[in-house]
Design a binder for these strands. Structure first.
Lengths: 192, 192
DNA sequence: GTAATTTCTTGAACTAGTTCAATGTCCAGG
DNA sequence: CCTGGACATTGAACTAGTTCAAGAAATTAC
């Protein structure tokens, strides 16, 4: 149950067996069916969830009711609204499972307890968030600088499993254009 | 010289006088004239710079030679390419002063030394990066979900000093549209 | 103080992407 | 097995934003 997450944390830093044991002991294991909301707009996010199995989407809803997908999270990724989690404030996001999921969960108090008992995890979380930040910078750049077609092709490379796991209109909302246009881009590409 | 940065770090965590003294002792103070490149594409970023005075822009250049502004950094902000800095790899960014600047600089080795001697700074940097990440999430959402006019108005609220400090075409490239269109948006707004 | 360069504005022609509506497809549930 | 709802496709009309070109305004450099 913990092999994946233990491999994961060792990619960022080294930990003693005791530290790993402490970490594992603080994780809550949870099984969640598909189409379940882990978080809805207005709620405070009380988890950071590591996905051992399954696929989860986080998204915003804009003033016209349109969805904008922030993230497709799959195996070996974390999902949370960190701003809401850390500042204890209502979230603007929805987080919903796309498949049946196996999660390993940290709560605000268990995370604090972990960091108090084993401060070396601060480093791991810092490096994790840093990596996230640079990826998001790249994505913003791409959102502004490239055409819908390029974005879609790049998406297929980067997230090869998502097209089988999420409907197209959600992918369009991740890439930043309308589902109809994604459909047109796809037919255009398949004619080449 | 250190008052601003010391206030800044205390907003994220508490530090003993010794820790603060160590931190300050590791900072390199540097004065940089306007229109100086702190980093150019292809170089490895060897600094995290806290701006005591001045204004700095970081941007990408896309395949057609167009600039995309990632950040306008002013007093009490940090500027760096964290991916390049931490993974020691060539950057895709340019970082250029818009004004004469006073900077307090951490280098990769001084940062490591700081974190080794005073691990509590891990926490501060983690919280800093987290805040950055959530702001960038908001910005991505806004880039996708709102009109040019809304983006510009929101920009004026959020960065009231930048219009006096940076040319309009750079602001347009931050907001994600062409300088000509920004000009049109502005005349449209001023007619209201 | 004037030349040179960068920045900003305006207009006309264009295009990438949107919106709406209609039709077709694919399931999941009873 | 058939039916209702979600999902995808297509086309036509539209629009927000782009591109190009030219001129005006503002800065900068000597």
């Amino acid at each position: 149950m913990f092999t994946a997450i233990n491999e994961y944390i060792h990619r960022f830093a080294s930990f003693s067996p005791q530290e790993v044991a402490l970490f594992n002991s603080l994780l809550e294991h949870r099984t969640v069916p598909k189409k379940t909301f882990l978080l809805q707009e207005g709620e405070v996010c009380r988890f950071e969830a590591f996905i051992s199995k399954g696929c989860i989407r986080s998204y915003y809803v804009d003033e016209h009711g349109a969805e904008i997908t922030l993230q497709f999270a799959i195996e070996n990724w974390w999902v949370s609204d960190i701003a809401s989690f850390h500042e204890n404030k209502p979230s603007r996001m929805f987080i919903e499972t796309l498949e049946d999921c196996e999660l390993l969960i940290l709560h605000p108090d268990t995370k604090e307890s972990l960091l108090r008992q084993a401060p070396c995890f601060e480093r791991m979380f810092r490096l994790m968030v840093q990596r996230n930040l640079s990826r998001l910078q790249e994505r913003l750049f791409q959102t502004i600088a490239t055409s819908a077609e390029e974005k879609y092709l790049d998406f297929l490379q980067r997230y090869p499993t998502i097209p089988q796991r999420a409907p197209q209109h959600q992918i369009a909302s991740f890439l930043g254009f309308s589902p109809e246009f994604l459909s047109k881009v796809r037919t255009r590409l398949s004619k080449k």
